[in-house]
Amino acid sequence: MKYPIMIRVKQKQIAQLVSLGKRLDGRGLNDYRGIQLEVGVVGRAEGSARVRLGKTEVLVGTKIELGEPFPDVPNQGVLTVNAELVPLASPTFEPGPPREDAIELARVVDRGVRESKAIALEELCVEPGKKVFIVFVDVYVLNHDGNLIDASALAALAALLNTKMFNYEVKEGKIEVKPGYKPLSVKNYPIAVTFAQIDDKLVVDPWLEEEQVMDARITITTDKDGKICALQKGGYGYFTTQQVLEAAKIAKEKAEELRKLVVKG
């Protein structure tokens, strides 16, 4: 990635502050920005959620359709996560097929939902090998101000919890959709927590300027039991074993806080 000149200038300032345990926007090293969550914002979608993480804004919509299962898992429904970095969200996003970062974003969100077994895919099977439900989770980034992964993962979970599923009956091999809906069953609540490494220190929830000067990034997703279910390192720097273990501990604590925002009761 190319750094704009101004970022180079800010790099020293950001790093100096971080070494004192402070951040440019006044947060502590382990603090998230303010989080606002709205669900059911798009009526046409089966489920939807909009997350504002500071100035970062992500909208996630889910759709459920009938389709064919993958041949290697004929009795399971399908989960598909896609992310669009739409050009209206940042001067650095361009129209066109998903770039590497969009694909990584989608796959990291996907890994959290899939590996925590948040969606019981067996329950989405209608006719083994022939008909299953496909859950599409579409991540739409509306404003990029850093840490798209955590915002998207949070919005995806909130959207899935908001998703309504058809009532249906299978009669003589045909599916009859019946009136009314029931909520999609969500069994686990994976929460992604991302750290940026700046001058050998870890900061939680990096915003855009911190992302631009960071050496490396690590995302740790934990499930409702505090187990780690997905992990992704990014960026051109590296971590020590010590840092990774420390990050895992903080991620678990932070995830518990965030989970309370999405999962009520």
């Binding site: 890994r111 899939r114 590996e115 187990k227 780690i228 279910c229």
Partner: peptide, 8 residues
């Protein structure tokens, strides 16, 4: 560093 699955 990546991971998928479930670990304490």
């Amino acid at each position: 560093l990546q991971m998928d699955g479930s670990l304490t």
